[in-house]
Simulated assay, not measured.
Amino acid sequence: MILNFAHRGSLTEAPENTLPSFQKAIEHRASAIELDVQLTKDGHMVVVHDQKLARFNKQYPGFIKDYTLAEIKQIDIGSSFSSEFRGVTLSTFEEVLAICPPDLIINIEIKNIPVIYEGIERKLVDCLKEHNRLDNVIISSFDHLALKKVQQLVPNMPLGLLLYYRILKPWEYAKHCGLQLASVHPHVAYTDKEFIDEFHHLGLKVLPYTVNDKAKYQKLIELGVDGVFSNNPQIFAGV
């Protein structure tokens, strides 16, 4: 089974990482979605990629961590996408979970660089337990120490190793890093047959990001990837 993730929801059709974006991905019958979590000033998990608000609303400087949830909920981020979404705000992680069917696979990326959110791993795990959503979940991060903390809290939680830079023999790093990984998530630019084969030898799925071109997608499938993260509804819906 090829597993294609709607990257930040259906971000070409609605503001990324918002409830409308995830609702549209679900309407497309996506089998999996990807989202990002960060913490507000008062410790609430919100779903957002950037650690600053400037790309969505230039009236609000600073980082996500500088605002309380109540303040976040007053900030219009939808208008930067289109007038149709005027008034749409960032969602809490709990709000997103509430609209996700139980069989929908959710890749949760912990955004922990450059801001380090102390305790976000426990908050995330506790929230998943409270909502009975430990199944059909992958937790990923470029912060591999965050993955280690998740593993200590839930030893059997599927973990995704996010990689951005090209490094020498990344499969050796994955083998010896002490993480019980389920998958590796590399940048699409260097995802080649050697990379795929070496990680498959370790028993890990290879899920590159971000694959939007259908020709590139087909080539990666031929090379043996197990799925992709995509902004293209035709790809993440398996069309």
Results as ranks from 00 to 15, higher is better:
R55S: 02
P102L: 02
I33F: 10
K193P: 08
F22V: 03
H176V: 14
H200Y: 07
S79R: 13
A215I: 15
A182K: 15
E130Q: 10
C127T: 00
H176M: 13
F195K: 01
V96W: 13
D192Q: 14
P20F: 00
A30I: 05
W171T: 05
S230H: 00
I105Q: 06
A182T: 14
K214D: 09
N212S: 08
T210W: 04
R122A: 15
G78A: 01
H176S: 15
P155N: 00
N112E: 10
K129D: 13
F236T: 04
T40C: 00
E16S: 07
L163M: 12
V115D: 11
L3I: 13
P102M: 06
E109V: 04
G43L: 05
K52F: 10
W171K: 06
A174S: 13
Y173C: 02
Q51K: 08
L19K: 05
K216D: 15
Y67N: 05
V46R: 02
K175Q: 10
M45S: 01
I75A: 03
P101V: 13
T89D: 13
P170N: 07
E95I: 12
C177P: 10
Q234F: 10
E198G: 05
Y165G: 11
L19M: 09
V150C: 01
Y164T: 14
D42I: 02
K73E: 09
P61E: 09
N232H: 07
L153S: 03
T92P: 07
Q51C: 11
E194T: 14
K58H: 15
R55Q: 07
I33G: 02
F195L: 05
G78S: 00
A98F: 04
S80M: 14
H7T: 06
E84R: 14
L202P: 07
D36H: 03
P170L: 04
I138K: 01
A6K: 07
I72V: 07
F22N: 03
L145K: 15
I110E: 07
R86L: 12
N136H: 12
V88F: 07
Y190S: 11
H28L: 05
Y190E: 11
N156T: 15
M157W: 04
I108Y: 15
D126Y: 04
S91V: 09
A70P: 02
V188P: 00
P20D: 08
A14N: 00
K41E: 00
I120W: 03
S82H: 01
H44T: 04
H185V: 08
G203R: 04
D50I: 07
D36A: 10
T68I: 08
K123L: 11
A98G: 08
S10M: 06
E94G: 02
V48R: 11
I221L: 15
M157H: 02
I138Y: 03
E16R: 02
P186R: 01
L168D: 11
Q234K: 13
Q59R: 15
E194F: 04
H7V: 06
I106S: 11
T89P: 06
K149I: 09
D50Q: 02
P233Q: 02
H28N: 10
V88Y: 01
L3Y: 14
I167L: 11
I167H: 12
E71A: 09
A215R: 15
S21T: 02
V96K: 12
Q38R: 05
A174W: 08
H187Q: 09
A237M: 00
C177T: 14
A30P: 07
D50T: 05
